[in-house]
């Protein structure tokens, strides 16, 4: 006898409160700006956190940052899945924004894996319509003119 099968979708439509620090970060993204945060020891965290993971102390004032940075490590995604930020092959990368001491995870739209390398410079590509989400930052792209 044939065995039945059927799609089964489990869905939770949560809303999350951001807290003051992430809320400020997302508000800046909506404005098309990157904003980190300074710790009591003078380091700049990007993305910002409410507490310094090194000391446990509350972080301090926001630090405006440029939309440019450097890839510190990466992994190529040859077959993007539903829910991925890009629908064509891309790299997940840790990107240290200029002026920051930590790196953020995001997508790099490089076209092909051999266009990626650790140390390459990238710049942010923004969505035209932004809502206050990490996806307002559509992805990073290699800085034009830089040889792979």
């Amino acid at each position: 006898m044939d065995v039945l099968s059927a799609p089964y979708v489990l869905e939770y439509t949560y809303q999350r409160s951001t807290g003051p620090v992430i809320g400020r970060f997302l508000t800046a993204l909506r404005d098309g700006r990157l904003e980190g945060v300074r710790t009591t020891t003078g380091r700049v965290l990007m993305p910002p956190l409410e507490y310094d993971p090194a000391t446990g102390e509350a972080t301090g004032e926001p630090v405006p940052l440029p939309p440019d940075g450097v890839v510190t490590t990466w992994a190529w995604v040859a077959t993007p899945r539903p829910g991925h930020p890009l629908d064509r092959p891309f790299a997940w990368a840790l990107i240290r924004i200029d002026g920051a001491d930590t790196a953020m995870l995001h997508a790099v739209d490089a076209g092909a894996a051999d266009a990626m390398r650790t140390g390459m410079r990238v710049t942010a590509r923004w969505r035209a319509e932004r809502t206050g989400s990490i996806l307002d930052l559509a992805c990073f792209v290699p800085v034009a003119g830089e040889a792979p």
Partner: peptide, 17 residues
């Protein structure tokens, strides 16, 4: 300022009976 974000969870299974 942004204070809330949608955080949707969607899991798409195929159940075999």
């Amino acid at each position: 300022p942004v204070t809330m974000v949608p955080s949707h969870v969607r899991l798409t299974y195929t159940v075999t009976a």
